[in-house]
Each structure stands twice: as structure tokens, then as C-alpha cells.
Design a protein around this nucleic acid. Structure first.
Length: 586
RNA sequence: GGUCCGGUAGUUCAGUUUGGUUAGAAUACAUGCCUGUCACGCAUGGGGUCGCGAGUUCGAGCCUCGUCCGGACCGCCA
């Protein structure tokens, strides 16, 4: 790292460099004045090196550094010396620099928060001064980790013949899917570009072009509300292959994931389990199950719908989970669980429990309707043992499954079953092709409109669209959807039928996706692919909940950049040039 | 669009339950002392429109309403 201004970094000097003349540059992490001695911790990207000053022998230097403050940038020339008292906690802890000469390269204001691993700064403040936050080890290391992961992926993909090709960011807007970020056109007044939600159609066109194996680590943009794991601009590892079946794609990316886990985490991931979408919903109430723990759903309709309890009798689904060893839950804890499922976010109307006591008796919240023999039958069906707690919900099938899914994750958290450092990968396959939307009274593509139906279901696309399964697959790690993909439609006529099923007129389909269907007339190969959420992958491999600390300059909860204070208004001159007038609707 | 939590010193928070004299702590900052620290130590000091607005009250950091800001979640995210 030698440059004109420094000979070494602050992280590399040790006993082997004793008595060498060195020049270091860096930021002042800390000044410790002990009267006759003064120590400065000098920090750069690579570490910390201690500078030592002796008032008796270096009075001028000591006077000079007296005015220095935190985060000043200095250059120091001096000699590497062995310390009297060593610091075993840092790599450079055996040595220190006896300085001969110091140059202030830049002064610094006192930062609004401490630049330490455990900073005193809150989230918003750290975002506003992100360039200071990035000096801290935890955040800096996240970005270094991100770099390492991207290099690992690029090398692997290159090694197996994938070509990285860039696709445009200024594309056309489509009404399907997420909201688009929109960019006004100066040269075509009244017309707008959109930023891509993904390079989906471009990668399909690259297949038509014969590129065979394409990938790209690429920014994608979606104008939707944020979450801890959702940013309006995020990065995908976008891939597409030709002449493949679903099995080929799964094999290729299973290979990539195994490689990543081995290289980055030193973990051998075995063959990745697969579950159908239908089973995922049935047993976990989620299309992205956290499979680190069991607690699978048990349908209890047959053992609970023969008594006078209307709530159960009228329900389409009565479903339970078994919480191991929780029979001793107090009234307060049980009420807490009921409150949890009744929160608007979950939206259940209630929760029934059955405590399976050690002495073989049962206590439930519905004892009025069910006797011990009934509860015994429930316990048997649910495979519950003495000491366990059975939690039961009832209602419309899918809704109840989703609610129970939320409770299952909550119980997993409470029982410490969602362990950090443990990784459970899962392919979710056989997604439905279409999803009925009550509000707009039409079908929507569950994945996207280019997803191919299972060949054996093609015939019923018009007659029973809701029953058509897709050649689509998601990769789920610890309950997070890390990626997804599908085999695409490569036949122009099938694509037309698909658009029709989605309620497009021929003209609409032609206007929006004509370029793709036209391309399909010129020898489109069978193709399919997958995209991995790169930010999420970084976070999961680091056992972090939020992707924000793996993005150098992220947006806040309201999709704002608090450092730039963007978005912001633009000048009238700019608006005029773009042919835009801003007015309030309604 | 909705639910919940929060907003008090540069910063992180306590104080709000039960309204009552001069609003505290830690840390950061400044000054002084200290020759082996490395979370240095000790002493002293400065630092507050209690997010903003309205209301209730003799009196509001504390209660009520509104509003703005931040965070988590639901909807949304093909």
C-alpha cells in the first residue's frame, strides 16, 4: 500500500519491522494524554497503530499534538519501536511509532457520534453522516464482505461459462408488477422512461440472441414501501440460461449456493430439500418457510368438528401447532399469544390452546365444548406429548394458514428455535401460475407474465386458470426469499394465451410486450433462469436482519436519502425543459 | 392506506405510571493534574425552545387532540 504519502498502512506493522523508519497516514481515533506521555491511536482501513510521544525528549511535538482532535487526518514519520506494555488485542499491539515529524493533512470537526465499533449514534444520525458511519469497523466490514461475496459469485459464474452483460437502466414502464420509478424525457415531452424492476425481458432477449448463459450483478428499482429487507434500489444476481429445464437451473444454482457457503462460511451445504408451494402453505402457512425448526401444522378438522363449538364447525380449516414443553405457560403468556394473533398485522379473531399436562390430563380454553377424550384425540393427532402446548386456529383455509404461519414464527422466536449461524436452504417449487385478485376481478401472474406453465397444465390455461402450476421456483434461506426464477415461455402463441389469461387485449399485449413476442418469432430457444437478492444474501450470510448495513448509502424507511435530503424539488427551469408542470391531484 | 413503538444535553437514554421548587445519568466536548496508556485515571466546567402547534389546568417534559419526524410490521413488493 506504499504511496508517495505513506510507506505502510496502520494495520501491518509488527515486531519484524523493529527500528524501521516508516511513514503512516490516517485518522486520529483517540488521544490519551498521561502527562509526560501521550499516545495517539492512528486508524485507517487496515487497522490501528499507536503513536507514542515523550514530553521529556520531544517537547515541540507534544506541544504540536496538544491541539489535535478526533478524526483529524495526519501523516506521521517515525521509527517502529517495541512497546513497554503490549496490547494483545490488536495485530499491531507489540509495537508503536516513536514519531519524529507530524504533518496535519486535514483538521476535522468533532463528529456527532463516536467512531467506534459500538457507536453512541442512532440510526438516523448515522445515515445522515454515513461517510463517518462507514469508518466504523462493523459497517466497513459489511461492505468488505459484500465485495468478497460479489467476487466469489463473479468468479464462479465466469468459471462455468456465464457471460456478464449490462442491460439498460432507462427502459419502458409496464403496469404489471411493482410500481415503476419514472424518469421524464427531455427530448420527448410528455413521455417517460422507467427504471427496471429487473432486467427480465432483456435477459430473455439475450437468450434469443444466443448468449446461452448470461448473468449480471445489477441494480433493480421498485417504487414500493420499504422493509428492513427491502430497499427501493437493490441488487440482484440476475441469471438466464438456454436449452434448460427447471431441473438444470436448480442444479446450476444449487452449485453456486453450495460454493458460496463453502467459500464464505466454510459450511458444506448438502443437497437442498424441496417442497411444493402447496405443501409449504399446508405445513408452514408461508411460501417461504423457515425450516430451521419443525412445528409443522396439523389439520384438526376431523377431531374437532363433531361437538357444539360453532367457531370450529363453521371453519373451512381447523389447524394446530405443537409448542414443545410449553404446557406450563401462564395465563398471562397465553393471553399474550392471543393478543399477538389478534393484532391487525396478523388479524386472527382468536386462539385456542390445549395444555397437555405431565399427569396425562388436558386443560384447554374450550373445555366447555370438549371433554378429556376429545382433547386426548387432538393431542394424538397433533403428536403432542405430556408437557406440550397445542395452539389452534380456525377460519378460511389460506387466511388461517397465513395467520398460523405468523404464530409459528413467533413461537420459533420465543423458543429460540431460529438460531443464528444455522442455515436451512429450501427450494419451493410448483407455484401456481396465476393468482386471482378479488379487487380487480382478474388473474395476476404470481411470478411474472413470462413464466411458463407446467407442460401438463398448458391445456387448462383457459378452462381452469387457477389450477395451473408454473415451472417456477424460489430459493429460501431461514425463512427469507433469497431468490426465485422460472422456465420462461419461448413460444409466441403460448405467450399470447398467457397475456389473454391475464386480461390483456391483443393490442395492449402488443403495445407493451410486442418487442418480446416479435423476438420470439425469430428462433427463441427454450430458456429459464433465476435471480438472487444480493443484499439479502449478504445479510443472511452475516446473520443480520436488515440489509441496510450492507448498502453503502441506503434509503430510510420513507425511501428518502437523509444525507442528500433526496428526493427534492427541482427548479422551474428544469421543469420547463422537461415540459412538466407540477400540480396537486384532487 | 393501516397498526404499533419512539422523539428530553453534541450523542445514547432515565424522568411521563401518580402534573408541582433549579429536568438528571452516562458518554462526547473544554480546562487543569498525571511518564506506559490502550474503554487510561482524577478534578472542574460549559452544554436543554423536553420535535412542533393547540387545548385542559392555578401549574404541563408528564394529561388530551392535531401535526411533523424516525423505527418495526400489515397492505403493497408480477
Amino acid at each position: 500500500m506504499k504511496t508517495s504519502l505513506r510507506t505502510h498502512t496502520c494495520g501491518e506493522l509488527n515486531m519484524q519491522h523493529l527500528n524501521e523508519k516508516v511513514t503512516l497516514c490516517g485518522w486520529i481515533q483517540k488521544i490519551r494524554k498521561l502527562g509526560g506521555m501521550t499516545f495517539i491511536d492512528l486508524r485507517d482501513r487496515y487497522g490501528i497503530t499507536q503513536l507514542a510521544f515523550d514530553a521529556a525528549t520531544q517537547p515541540e511535538l507534544c506541544q504540536q499534538i496538544d491541539s489535535f482532535g478526533r478524526e483529524w487526518v495526519i501523516q506521521v514519520k517515525g521509527t517502529v519501536k517495541e512497546r513497554y506494555s503490549k496490547n494483545k488485542n490488536i495485530p499491531t499491539g507489540d509495537i508503536e511509532i516513536m514519531a519524529d515529524e507530524i504533518t496535519v493533512l486535514n483538521e476535522s470537526l468533532t463528529p456527532p457520534f463516536t467512531i467506534e465499533d459500538e457507536s453512541d449514534g442512532g440510526d438516523e444520525l448515522r445515515m445522515r453522516y454515513r461517510y463517518l458511519d462507514l469508518r466504523r469497523n462493523p459497517v466497513k466490514n459489511n461492505l468488505l464482505f459484500r465485495h468478497k461475496l460479489s467476487i466469489t459469485i463473479r468468479n464462479y459464474m465466469n468459471h462455468i461459462g456465464f457471460v456478464e452483460i449490462e442491460t439498460p437502466f432507462l427502459v419502458g414502464s409496464t403496469p404489471e408488477g411493482a410500481r415503476d420509478f419514472v424518469v421524464p424525457s427531455r427530448l420527448s415531452h410528455g413521455e417517460f422512461f422507467a427504471l427496471p424492476q429487473s432486467p427480465q425481458t432483456f435477459k430473455q432477449l439475450l437468450m434469443v440472441a444466443g448468449f446461452d448463459r448470461y448473468f449480471q450483478i445489477v441494480k433493480c428499482f421498485r417504487d414500493e414501501d420499504l422493509r428492513a429487507d427491502r430497499q427501493p434500489e437493490f441488487t440482484q444476481v440476475d441469471c438466464e440460461m438456454s436449452f434448460v429445464t427447471q431441473e438444470d437451473v436448480i442444479q446450476i444454482f444449487e452449485g453456486l449456493l453450495k460454493h458460496i457457503f463453502k467459500e464464505i462460511k466454510g459450511i458444506e451445504v448438502g443437497d437442498i430439500e424441496r417442497i411444493t408451494w402447496a405443501d409449504a402453505m399446508k405445513y408452514y402457512g408461508s411460501d417461504k418457510p423457515d425450516a430451521r425448526f419443525g412445528m409443522r401444522f396439523v389439520e384438526l378438522n376431523d377431531v374437532l368438528q363433531h361437538k357444539e363449538f360453532k367457531v370450529f364447525n363453521q371453519a373451512e380449516l381447523v389447524v394446530g401447532i405443537v409448542a414443545k414443553g410449553c404446557a406450563s405457560y401462564t395465563r398471562k403468556q397465553l393471553d399474550g399469544l392471543t393478543e399477538f394473533v389478534k393484532r391487525p398485522q396478523v388479524g386472527a379473531s382468536g386462539l385456542v390452546y390445549v395444555q397437555c399436562h405431565e399427569d396425562g390430563t388436558f386443560k384447554s380454553s374450550v373445555d366447555k365444548f370438549y371433554d378429556q377424550a376429545d382433547l386426548q384425540a387432538v393431542a394424538k393427532k397433533a403428536n403432542a406429548e405430556p408437557g406440550d402446548l397445542i395452539l389452534i386456529m380456525a377460519g378460511p383455509r389460506v387466511k388461517t394458514q397465513v395467520q398460523m404461519g405468523a404464530l409459528r414464527l413467533e413461537m420459533g422466536d420465543r423458543l429460540g428455535l431460529r438460531k443464528k449461524g444455522e442455515y436451512k436452504l429450501l427450494w419451493v417449487v410448483d407455484f401456481p401460475l396465476l393468482e386471482w385478485d378479488e379487487e380487480t376481478q382478474r388473474y395476476y401472474a404470481m411470478h411474472h407474465p413470462f413464466t411458463a406453465p407446467k407442460p401438463e397444465h398448458e391445456a387448462i390455461l383457459e378452462t381452469k386458470p387457477g389450477e395451473v402450476n408454473a415451472n417456477a421456483y424460489d430459493i429460501v434461506i431461514n425463512g427469507t426469499e433469497v431468490g426465485g426464477g422460472s422456465i420462461r415461455i419461448h413460444d409466441k402463441n403460448l405467450q399470447k394465451r398467457m397475456f389473454k389469461a391475464l386480461g390483456f387485449t391483443e393490442e395492449e399485449a402488443q403495445k407493451q410486450f410486442g418487442f418480446l413476442m416479435n423476438a420470439f418469432q425469430y428462433g427463441a430457444p427454450p430458456h429459464g433462469g433465476l435471480a438472487l437478492g444480493f443484499d439479502r444474501l449478504c445479510a443472511i450470510l452475516s446473520d443480520a436482519d436488515s440489509i441496510r448495513d450492507f448498502i453503502a448509502f441506503p434509503k430510510n424507511n420513507a425511501a428518502r436519502d437523509v444525507m442528500l435530503n433526496a428526493p427534492s424539488t427541482i427548479s422551474d427551469a428544469q421543469l420547463k425543459e422537461l415540459g412538466i408542470k407540477v400540480s396537486e391531484w384532487e
